[in-house]
Every structure is written in C-alpha cells, then in structure tokens.
Nucleic acid binder design. Structure first.
Lengths: 308, 308
DNA sequence: AGAATTTACGCGGTCCGTAACCATG
DNA sequence: CATGGTTACGGACCGCGTAAATTCT
C-alpha cells in the first residue's frame, strides 16, 4: 500500500467519483489514478466502490471504512510535513482563516495587522462565508482556522477555543425617538421597524429566541449578512439597527447614536475552530493567541462583561 | 514522503537506534534504512536525531513529534489492510492474546475451545506475562488483546471492556482447623500461615489493602504468580491458600476444601484491553463477545455477585 | 581491531505519460 | 458522438542489494 494510492482514493471521493477530475487535481493523468485505485482494491482483495459498468457511483460499506483510515493516514503524514516546515522555516508559510463578514470587517483587521507585523513571511488568506460554510471549510481542510460564533457545537472533528464575548447594541440616527426611551426594553424595540442580521448570522438566532420567549415579534424590515448594509439603511431612516457591538466604529459612525443592549440579550461567544487531529504550526497557534489578545478589550471569556 | 521511510523511522526507534537491527527486522539491508532516514530528514529539512558522529543516540524534540504522527500514519494504513482482510478472508487470520497465568490456565481454555470451534481458520497465540507486561505488549502492538484485572486504568491509548467480576476463596486440606471457623473473618485468616499471589498479580494488591485497612498483617509464607503452585504447597500442608475463585476446579481439587471469601474482600473486575486507534477484525471483536459469554457464569459486571 | 554507518554503483522493477481502445448515455 | 474509463507500451526514475570506504568504540 502506498500513500499515493490513498491520495488518489481520497481525492476521488472528494471529486464526486470522477476519475479524470481527481487526476487533474492530483496533477496526474487519468490512467495513473485508475491504476492506483485498482492496485488498492487488488491488494486489499475487496471492491471499494459501487459501480455501474466502468463508472464509479460511490463507496460501498468497505470503502467507507477505508476512507476514514485513509484520511487519518494522510492527515498524519501532512502533520509530519508541517512539523518539518515548522522547524525548518519557522517564519514562512500560509495561514488560511475563514470568518463571517462581521468578524472579517470589524475584528480581524487589528489582529491581522499585529500578526503580520510579527510574521511578515506568512501569507494570509481570509476566506468568507456563512457560519455553516466556515465549519465546512475547516472540516474539509480548506482552511486552517475558522472564526465562529455559532453552529459548531456538535462537530466531533473540531476543537473550538473560546476567544471573546460580545453582545448587541442599538444604532439609530441622532434625534430618533427611540433614543429618548429609558430604559430600553424589548417592547420598545418592537415599536419601531428593525434592521438586523439574517438568520444564522452574527447571533441572530439567539436574538430572535429572546424576543419570542417574551411573546414578542419585532418588525424586521430588513435582514442583512453585513453590518455595513444595516448601517446604510439605518442612515436612510428605514428603521433602527441592532448590530454586534464591535461593529460600531466611533470614528466612522459618529452620525449614528449607539445604545448598549447587553441587558436584553444573551452574550455570544466567538471561538476559533480548527481540526482536532491536525498539527497547527507555530504561527497558526500564535494567530489564535494574537486574536485573543486583540479582542481582550471586547470581553474576555470567563470574566465580567466589558463592552466599552 | 513514503510509508517505507516512516516504517524505517519507527522501527529504528523501537530497535534502540541501531540501524542494522532495524534493517533486519524490516527484511532490508542496512544502507537501505540509512537512506530512508536521510531522505526523511532531507525532505523535512530538519534533523530528527541526537547524534554523536555517525551514531544515532536518540530522538531530538522534532523527532519526538514526528514519531507520534508516523505511528498514527502506520496505524491507519495497518487498519486499512485489516479492513481488507476482514472482508476478503473473514475466517482466517491471527489472534494474539496476552493474559496472566491465572486467566490463561483457568478462564481462557473454555473461551478458546468455543472460539476455535467457531473460527477454525484463525491461529491463536496466547502470550503470558505480568500485568505490567500485558499492558506493554498491547500498547506496543505486540498482541491484539490483553486480559487484565489490574494496572490498566490510566493508559489513554487503551480501551478496556469489562468482562466479569470475581473474588477470592480459601482453600485448605480437608480437616484443617480453619475450616471449622464460622464465620470466616480476616482475623481468622491471620491466625494461620497464608499462601497466595505475589504483589501485582491476581488482585493481591486489593487483598493486602483490605488487611492493612483493618490494621492486620497476614503471615504470608509463600507468594506465587501461579495458582497451581499455591495449591501444591497447600496440599503439602504449608498453610492455607487464598486464591481466585475461578481457579478452584471441583473436578481436580476435590481433596481441597473451598470456602467463599467474597464477604471479606472487594470484587475484582477482569477486562479486555486493546488499542483504541486500532481496527479490530471481526473475529477479534467476536473473541471479546465469547469471552464475556463464557465468563458470564462467574459474575457479570453490573449484576449481582455469583461465584458458583 | 571490529562493529556500525556512509558512499558508490548497477540492476531490476515500477511509476506515469502517451496513445489507442471500449463503454455509456 | 462526447464524456469517461481501461488496456497497452515504453522511457525515466528510483529503490534496494552488493561491495568498498569511513568512522567511532
């Protein structure tokens, strides 16, 4: 059994059982991949695929088991290579991070600035997607780290390290009547058209739950994945905005008044997730540290709320 | 990176960093193994060994990390091969079991009889050793399963499945004065010379603890690893025997009187341990089942005591 | 001096690319 | 007939064994 056979096998599965496509991804010609698969089946003495004629349709029961171990073997060898690079060329490499728009736009910039100053030789890739996509990317090893607030609790292959806590704030144009209301309650928020995130993004789930537990239904006139969009429509006078507190930028958003809402909604915890079995290079570990340090002002996990 | 390089690397470590010896174990010549090691170091761009001149003395820090992942890779590929064999030749293979003398002599025979009837094509190897050696064998993958009663609680690489509970009994020649004592207490046992197991064997630890908790010290005139030896000396009149209950064989030991001692000592649990990350072939799993079934009469874990 | 490791070299095997040949929808 | 897979074949590479050179105890 050879590693290249396992690589062909795994790549084939990830290429929808299209041998030609797998070959291309592996920078090989198609007959080579076919041979690897045949060698693997011959050596094991078992068929691994469901077939119709020459076409491969999917894995059979044996193939499923083999796939899991093949992935484990390739992960292990990948780790060995990473350990090598980590000691041979400490300061160079690639760091692939996935994050939602809110994180990428408002939290990561300062982290990246500090990290890049420390590791000028490390190429950073910031990928963006929905929370579900982030999980998927990191599970498929399409990225090294994913900055997640929601949706990763159940996955056994991932390890999530908590980084900081945050909550929402209200934004409204100066002079808006809602700003006069004291105290701010859920009822008050329901009295105005609301602009906030769509479901599944930036804590929208927990927010909606809070309303419905009180038997309230806010009038959400617009849902966005992107805080910039929310702010824009708030400025247009379409409604009041409920956004993640760290997305309010005093320098640029002085025309919008902010009111803390942490007394109304549960705290969200933003974590960094990575594959449990994968070796993290020194600078990848360090990125997590820097992330935690840079977000310390926002609210450290396990300490009192601080949403300056 | 090639699997054969990793194999050479791991084998070298397990051969006390003697390249020639590693080569022999791998059925290769020595320069071949040297080349593998050099290729590995060259490709990773890092030294993996502590050296004095050409001699290899041990691993350095990097080598340690690489070793762990190399083992993981080889385990994974081994698992793939096992899955293959498991489906291609269900009924044939090798099963290597390690056990202490007591288990091998008194518990395993009926298990083996039943198992072998079911799998005539499976070659059984019964290895014997001290409890510490059993753990070591299974951790180093020198055996597939280890039948253990003590000393495996802490090891993270192992999985132990509980099989049955047992306790001790007293054996003495017919007519011995101790047999007249009712009830049998710890004090009574201390009144006579005792023959039992040495420390670390067959529950001797828990037995001694029970005495010392009561401030008692039995007069152990002979410690053995082997119940047959204990019985022999009891027959010679050297003292009373305290042995594992399942080691009393009514057919052969009719000349020795037995008294249950389960009211005096804690129950012991015998488990079968195997490597957590290793694929167990069908018949290996089945051996565990058969073991549990055959020992059910002795005392099932989680049910009431039954030491018929 | 002897044991252990590295260097040198050549043969055999095999990996993969090219090209021609089949199957399926 | 186009897309996708297998069979056939040859050149280049490389893994390993033999043998000589080198280094450490």
């Amino acid at each position: 059994m050879e590693l290249r056979q396992l690589r062909s096998f795994v790549t084939l599965v990830e290429s929808d059982f299209n041998v030609s496509q797998a070959a291309e991804r592996l920078h090989l010609v198609q007959p080579a991949v076919s041979q690897h698969l045949r060698q693997l089946e011959d050596e094991l003495g078992v068929r691994l695929f469901r077939r119709r004629g020459k076409r491969l349709l999917g894995l059979n029961e044996v193939g499923d088991k083999v796939l899991a171990y093949a992935r484990a073997a390739l992960t292990a060898t990948g780790n060995i290579a990473a350990v090598g690079k980590d000691h041979a060329q400490e300061q160079t490499g690639v760091l692939r991070v996935a994050a939602t728009h809110t994180q990428a736009r408002y939290v990561l910039p300062s982290v990246v600035r500090r990290f890049s100053a420390e590791y000028p030789g490390v190429a950073l890739e910031i990928h963006q997607g929905t929370p579900a996509q982030l999980i998927d990317m990191v599970v498929r090893d399409g990225v090294d780290l994913a900055v997640c607030t929601e949706g990763l609790d159940p996955h056994p292959a991932l390890l999530a390290v908590p980084c900081y806590r945050w909550n929402r704030c209200l934004v409204a144009p100066e002079g808006h009547p809602v700003l006069a209301c004291k105290p701010l309650t859920l009822d008050v928020l329901c009295a105005y058209p609301v602009i906030t995130y769509v479901f599944g993004f930036t804590g929208r789930g927990n927010m909606s739950d809070t309303f419905s537990r009180e038997g309230l239904r806010p009038h959400v006139v617009l849902g966005a994945v992107d805080t910039d969009v929310i702010k824009t429509y708030v400025r247009e006078g379409l409604g009041i905005g409920i956004i993640a507190d760290m997305a309010y930028q005093p320098d640029h958003d002085a025309d919008l008044a902010r009111r803390d809402l942490s007394h109304l909604f549960p705290w969200e915890v933003t974590k960094i997730a990575h594959l449990r079995n994968k070796y993290l290079r020194g600078f990848q570990q360090r990125f997590i540290d820097v992330f935690q340090a840079e977000t310390a002002g926002l609210g450290q996990v396990g300490r009192g709320p601080k949403t300056g």
